[in-house]
Design a protein around this nucleic acid. Structure first.
Length: 568
RNA sequence: CGGGAUGUAGCGCAGUUUGGUAGCGCAUCUGGUUUGGGACCAGAGGGCCGCAGGUUCGAAUCCUGUCAUCCCGACCA
């Protein structure tokens, strides 16, 4: 491609709206332009990279035996009504009406559609197992789109769904997708981590996320260097840390704690450590109230709580009025003693002795509280959030944490949608059974952003060869030199003939401008035709290299071909 | 959805406190000089100052409303 004809509006200055590297660079390099919050157009260079990501995903899905199809993005409401998700999605679904006042939406995800497609079109159990996928644009009206392509309202996703006759089949289908995902992210040049993820209350038997470690990631990863265990923060199992506990049981005491309604204030006024307290927090879950206890220096993990309670709605903090009614006290003085709602205590609380809790009376706390003597929790379970330094649940070493961008998620769905929509089959003995599903997503556009987030320096993007918009660039340093231009053209033609996707910077710009742009758009390898062309010498430089190397033009061409073939 | 900030030329910004006919840098166009890491000189074009009301002789500037964008948090099938 001739850059004199290429729509590549690079920006020298950083657009004010972009906060993170990938967003800034994708705008500056002329890959994307914003149309509205979380909605972007792809310009030629951006589209080329996007198509390459899609193609890698497609090749690996096909290799794994999945079949590609394509659903509409515009969907009638009925598609989501049977599963209840027309309501569940709420405001995050883009809803619209047609001219006859019929409800439609722009599809946020397609479990129902795939399930229905299989119901309508698969006739015999002999057709299973089957995995179907599509690469398609999704719409979610996010409360807060941000970070460019990392969290948009319109984005491209590869979603796949497996259909199996039994659990064993699901395990096999899941494993195939797992392997395919590893290949995909490796080919995309991403440095990724696979973490155990929450599989939700609907009883899926497994779920893993593919994370690209990055400080701008929105998900927390807890991991262990010693044994390789890694889990989503929400999912990571917590090993109780007993701290030192006093011997014996002291006498229960009610003490005045005026206006001390936070742990910090209690620590301050009583001169004790946060881990001598137990917080009691009133949650509302599906219109029922429960009390949740964690140690003073811990936080409640609402995902674990939700799974424990098995509620449909996410648990949320009870309204202040409800708290006052339940505890007969101001907010901040709730405790387990004398409460008439179920008490769920974290495992760590069960290990505590002579600790402090709210007294269910304004400005009062109990001191020297002991489980068994003063109250009995209805349930003891792991309901806190993991913290750095916790013991690894697998090997006991110290847990570390990092942020990650979720680029893929694989999930054993089970029968949630096949039950809801009635996807069954008759087995060989004529018995009616439910098809077991898995679902597997990859954020295609997000992968593009993640690749830039992971591959850039001060000068711009550093694309992996596999998804670079072009693989090589030829730069004649002085456009007024006929000799340089002619030789650049010759090299450009040679590279194209060798099957290398090549740009030639034939613009009448100064050399500095061309170098800056080549670096900014991140082309993996560059040949500069300069003054030494009289002796047949050009410069060869990979984007990652510090300095260019001089060599004969022919050698540079074969070096580029070699480099591209080795790194694709 | 709660908290905060910002909307002025394609991009980055000043001007708003104290009302007086809109400015700088980059980019664009023309001419000239340059030509290996975002050149220089001279000239030119480009604005419903987010939008709608209001106050005023007069509003980018003051008041009210509204919309949009970004940041922190909540939420994220």
């Amino acid at each position: 491609m001739r850059m004199s004809k290429l729509l590549m509006p690079t920006l020298r200055e950083v657009p004010a709206e972009a906060e993170i590297a990938s967003h800034q660079l994708m705008l500056r390099a002329g890959l994307i332009r914003k149309l509205a919050a979380g909605v972007y157009s792809y310009l030629p260079l951006g589209l080329r990279s996007l198509k390459k990501v899609e193609q890698i995903v497609r090749e690996e899905m096909d290799r794994a035996g999945a079949q590609e199809l394509l659903m509409s993005a515009l969907l009638p409401a009925e598609a989501y009504q049977a599963s209840g998700r027309w309501e569940v999605f709420g405001p995050s679904m883009f809803k619209l009406k047609d001219r006859n006042d019929r409800d439609f939406c722009l599809g946020p995800t397609h479990e129902e559609l795939f399930t229905q497609t299989v119901i309508d079109n698969v006739r015999s159990y002999k057709e299973y197992p089957m995995t179907l996928y599509q690469i398609q644009t999704k719409y979610r009206d996010e409360g807060r789109p941000r970070f460019g392509l990392i969290r948009g309202r319109e984005f491209i996703m590869k979603d796949a769904y497996s259909f199996d006759l039994d659990e064993k089949g699901l395990d096999e289908s899941y494993k195939k997708m797992y392997d395919a995902y590893c290949r995909i992210f490796t080919r995309l040049g991403l440095d990724f981590t696979i973490v155990d993820a929450d599989s939700g209350a609907m009883g899926g038997s497994g779920s893993q996320e593919f994370m690209v470690k990055s400080p701008v990631g929105e998900d927390g990863i807890a991991y262990c260097d010693a044994c390789g265990y890694a889990a989503n923060y929400e999912k990571c199992e917590c090993i109780p840390d007993p701290k030192e506990q006093p011997e014996g049981e002291l006498e229960l005491e009610k003490i005045e704690t005026p206006n001390a309604h936070t742990i910090d204030e209690l620590v301050e006024s009583l001169g004790m450590e946060a881990y001598n307290f137990a917080k009691t927090i009133i949650y509302k879950a599906d219109d029922k109230y429960v009390a949740v206890m964690v140690r003073g220096d811990r936080d409640v993990n609402e995902v674990k709580l939700k799974n424990l309670l098995g509620c449909t709605d996410d648990p949320e903090l009870a309204e202040p009025e409800a708290v006052r009614e339940i505890t007969h006290a101001k907010v901040g003085f709730a405790g387990p003693i004398g409460l008439d709602i179920p008490v769920y205590a974290d495992k760590e609380v069960a290990l505590m002795k002579n600790f402090v809790v709210g007294a269910n009376e304004s400005d009062m706390h109990y001191k020297n509280v002991n489980i068994g003597r003063d109250f009995e929790p209805d349930t003891v379970a792991d309901i806190r959030v993991v913290v750095t330094g916790d013991k690894c649940p697998k090997c006991g070493a110290s847990i570390k944490s990092e942020q990650g961008i979720e680029v893929g998620h694989i999930f054993k769905l089970g029968t949630k949608y096949s039950d809801a929509l009635g996807l069954t089959y008759l087995d060989e003995s004529g018995k009616n059974k439910t098809v077991i599903m898995g679902c597997y997503g990859i954020g295609v556009t997000r992968c593009l952003a993640a690749a830039v987030e992971q591959g850039h320096d001060d000068n711009g993007i550093i694309w992996p060869v596999s998804i670079a918009p072009y693989q090589a660039i030829v730069v004649p340093a002085n456009y007024k030199s006929e000799e340089q231009m002619a030789e650049a053209e010759r090299i450009y033609a040679a590279l194209n003939d060798a099957g290398i996707e090549t740009l030639i910077d034939d613009r009448s710009e100064r050399a500095g401008v061309k170098f800056k742009d080549a670096d900014l758009i991140g082309i993996p390898v560059r040949i500069v035709v300069g003054k030494k062309i009289g002796d047949g010498i050009v410069e060869y430089k990979e984007r990652k290299m510090e300095k260019a190397e001089e060599m004969a033009a022919e050698d540079a061409v074969s070096r580029v071909v070699e480099f591209v073939k080795a790194n694709i």
